[in-house]
Simulated assay, not measured.
Amino acid sequence: MASSPARRRRVVTLLALAASLAVAAPAVDARPGGGGGMGWRGSKTFSAPPSTPTSPGATGPIQRSQTSPSPGFNNPGMAAPSQGRRFGGGFLGGMLGAGLLGALLGAGFAGGLGGIGSFIGLIFQIGLIALLVMLAVRFFRRRQEGAQPAMASHASYARSGPPPQGGPQGGGLQGGMNPVGGGYSGGARPQPIQIQPDDFQAFERSLTEIQGAYGREDVASLRRLATPEMVGYFEEELRANAARGVVNRISDVKLLQGDLSEAWREGPVEFATVAMRFSLRDEVFERASNRHVENGPQEAKEFWTFVREPGGPWLLSAIQQGR
């Protein structure tokens, strides 16, 4: 028996309602790092870097690292990158799907969509579920923020004068002495260090060179600019692109704003974490036909951590997302 026009309209209305309430999956950035947190920050690997004027909001956690947290370390950021999305999107989407299936089979959440009362009841239940999901997400976010007690509040950010000129993109990083404390690595307590203008220019050059090398799939250059761990992650991403038959081309990288989050020494090894807001042209093409597939974000805000041994160059050792 053919469905009545009223029933078809009801099903179409439900589908439109579900589409409007569905929780969309966040876009994954194609540039190096894929929009996630990865790498190594010494004893601070699982601690959020202090916020800065460039990135005053919360910092995304390290999600991939060859370093394991110390025993008893409470690290909410160790969850898989998509766990938060699965909680909201999977749970709510499953309930919506159940309701739509019930509508198509002649029964809704609470036993049928035959009348206007059932339809209003379905809308009410969907709204209630959405409210419960939103409250739960807020609860877990507050717990995560509470687990890392206001690292930014004692960042003691200080400027050392105008930004250095002559960097490759002219945006300029600025920073100064930034006391830090807490944590151990190999028995050596982190000690604050001073970052010089030449160091900031090196960080800015690394931003441009690493993005460019990634876009060219130039692994040899990436090995010169980053730690073996970071190069391993980049190679995984490049292999995934190749498997999809696409290539991610990055160009026109320009530092817009940057400053120091923290800088420290652990034994003979020095670390520096800088917040950088930069623009770029991030595009994906089909590898075989060179057909343009999609555009990535045109501006990004990230924390990059660099490490160096005595007498050695600064190497990229971690990327985290800023806000």
Rank of each mutant, 00 (worst) to 15 (best):
V137T: 12
V137H: 10
R138A: 13
R138Y: 11
F140T: 14
R142E: 13
R142C: 13
R143V: 15
R143W: 09
R143S: 15
E145D: 15
E145Y: 13
G146W: 13
G146L: 14
A147G: 12
P149N: 07
M151Q: 14
H154T: 12
A155R: 08
Y157S: 08
Y157P: 14
Y157F: 13
Y157G: 13
A158Q: 11
A158E: 08
R159A: 15
S160V: 11
S160P: 12
S160C: 06
G161P: 09
G161F: 06
P162D: 13
P163V: 14
P164C: 00
Q165D: 12
G166T: 02
G167K: 04
G167T: 00
G167E: 02
Q169Y: 15
G172D: 09
L173R: 04
L173M: 07
Q174C: 12
Q174V: 14
G176F: 03
G176N: 06
G176D: 06
G176S: 05
M177E: 10
P179G: 03
P179R: 03
V180N: 10
V180G: 12
G181C: 08
G181Y: 09
G182H: 08
G182E: 04
S185F: 06
G186T: 02
G187E: 03
G187D: 08
A188W: 10
A188R: 04
R189C: 11
R189F: 13
P190Y: 00
Q191A: 09
I193S: 02
I193E: 06
Q194C: 09
I195Y: 05
I195S: 02
Q196T: 07
D198Y: 02
D198P: 03
Q201R: 10
Q201T: 05
A202Q: 05
A202I: 03
F203V: 01
L207G: 07
L207K: 07
E209S: 08
I210M: 01
Q211Y: 15
Q211I: 10
Q211K: 15
G212I: 06
G212K: 06
G215R: 04
D218A: 01
D218G: 02
D218H: 01
S221Y: 10
L222T: 04
R223T: 08
R223M: 08
R224H: 10
L225I: 07
L225W: 04
A226M: 08
A226H: 04
P228V: 05
E229P: 11
M230N: 10
Y233A: 15
